[in-house]
Design a protein around this nucleic acid. Sequence first.
DNA 1: CCGTAAATGTCGTCG
DNA 2: CGACGACGTTTACGG
Lengths: 224, 224
Amino acid sequence: MRIVVADCSVSYQGRLTARLDRAVRVLMVKADGSVLIHSDGGSYKPLNWMSPPCWLTVTHTEPDEQTWIVENKAKEVLTITVHQVHGELAHDLGVDPGLVKDGVEAHLQELLALHVGALGEGWTLVRREYPTAIGPVDLLCKDGTGASVAVEIKRRGEIDGVEQLTRYLELLNRDPLLAPVAGVLAAQEIKPQARTLAEDRGIRCLVLDYQALKGADDPSLRLF
Amino acid sequence: MRIVVADCSVSYQGRLTARLDRAVRVLMVKADGSVLIHSDGGSYKPLNWMSPPCWLTVTHTEPDEQTWIVENKAKEVLTITVHQVHGELAHDLGVDPGLVKDGVEAHLQELLALHVGALGEGWTLVRREYPTAIGPVDLLCKDGTGASVAVEIKRRGEIDGVEQLTRYLELLNRDPLLAPVAGVLAAQEIKPQARTLAEDRGIRCLVLDYQALKGADDPSLRLF
DNA sequence: CCGTAAATGTCGTCG
DNA sequence: CGACGACGTTTACGG
């Protein structure tokens, strides 16, 4: 990793054409050759960048000026003209152990698959990732009466999730072995608009309590 | 902007729970208090971060150890334990003039509006950005027989685009002066799932050749 | 390797 | 401020 604070101009030619006029910025060159150009604001997204795999070539066009050219296989080119270097720092970081996450959608699905009874009395799991022509349904279940229910799981329930589930339901209901198939949108948080649309379409909304699901050995599990 | 190369451990509690075990990383502290934690690989996305607006507090828990706590309004907390500092660099960058983009996206609509004949024999343009209650349709056309056709243009045709066009068609078909209105999804690339859904709904899929449209003076223009 | 869905998405625009 | 769509989306996961 090499970090350079420099007065620079930048141009990018690739999926679009973009340019950064001359200013002082931070250039981050990673071990794999990728380059990030950061300003002193915005969010984590750099002003401009080149992702690996890519190759950096530095040339001195003038005594006090460098030109960095970063290219990749797809012929995208990031060109950085370094007018003046204000600071520099380099260090070998080695390989990172990586981020360990907890609480994403996959975990919710896992937990709910394990405790499908939380959806209703006597419910059973048919399978996770039940395949359809347009993609897999998160959970396909049978309710207490043996009727099919498709469950779509989201961290946040929004319009998109309702649309997604609606598409699945439309397809599943064409299968005479399954039909009629009801729908449940399960999420840690459900936006009012999504709830309105879902209920309008006869889809049940269920707010999940992740903590309660995790502590599901606890019989005081509360989902409703 | 302040950059610190440090041996550190990190934890994040907020929309999810995540943790980074001890390793040497680059900590970038921006003028607005936001913090990025980068490793020597991956892409432009940091391993972990806190976006502005947020506030950084540094405490010395032990003589040779700092604890950085970054919090925001939503009570999300990023905690960085700095075990050892290997390098440091600070510089005032000032305000950046920002990225200037030259979009390609709008061009596609422009080009197709000019050469609407490419959609079919005898087609004519009614108008671009034809207004509906839920937003403008990219193109409204008449085909060779005088029937209405709504055209949705995307760089990449995905499910979302089909849903969008479906909503437009539903509205447009309520207008007795227009109905029946057919639909065309036109994109440089159409995903199989989107194609399946579109055709299921009677929406025609059309793959656009940007180069051919650009060289549209050339009578050998081929879209099909 | 390709395709699809998730994301602490981020970022603009528009109501 | 919230909703919606685009993004050089990026990233992870499954066939």
